[in-house]
Amino acid sequence: MQRPTKAFNLPLLLAPFISRLGDALYLFGLNWFVVKATGNASLLGIIQATGGVVLFFGDLLCGVVVDNFNRKHVVVSAELLSVLGCLFCAWWLDPQHITAAPLITLTILLDIGLAFSLPAAKAMIPELITLEGRQRFNAVSNTLIDLADICSPLLGGLLLALHWLDLRGFLLLNATSFLLSFGLYLSIHYHKPAGEASQLGVKDSLVTGWRYVWQRPGLVETIVLGGLINVLFAAMRLVLPYNVNHLYGGDSSRYSYLLVILAVGGILGGLRLTLNRNEPHRRQNYHDLILAAVAILVAGFWANYWVLLVVSGIFGFCYSCFEIRAITITQNLTEPDFLGRMFGILFLAIDAFQPVGSFVFGFVTDWLANLTLVIIGGCLLLGLGIINQWYQRLIRQD
Rank of each mutant, 00 (worst) to 15 (best):
L228C: 03
D204K: 12
E196I: 13
Y242C: 09
S205K: 07
Y212P: 05
G226F: 07
L206K: 02
W210Y: 13
L240A: 15
L206E: 02
L232E: 09
V224F: 10
V239C: 14
G227N: 10
V244H: 08
W210A: 14
V231N: 15
L238A: 13
L225M: 09
S205D: 12
Q215V: 00
F233V: 04
N230A: 03
L228W: 02
V244W: 07
V213S: 11
P241R: 08
E221S: 12
H189N: 13
A235L: 03
H191N: 13
Y212L: 06
F233H: 10
E221A: 11
Y190F: 13
E221Y: 05
I223S: 04
H191L: 10
L240M: 14
T208V: 09
L225H: 00
V231Q: 14
K203P: 00
A235I: 05
T222W: 00
R216T: 06
L219I: 06
P241C: 05
Y212N: 05
P241D: 01
L238T: 13
Q199V: 06
V244P: 05
A194S: 15
F233A: 11
G218F: 08
M236W: 04
K203W: 13
V224W: 09
V244T: 11
L206N: 02
G218E: 06
A234R: 11
L228V: 08
N245C: 05
L228P: 01
P193S: 12
G227K: 03
H191E: 15
N243R: 10
V207T: 07
L200N: 05
H191F: 13
R216C: 06
V239M: 10
Y190Q: 06
M236A: 02
R216E: 12
G227F: 01
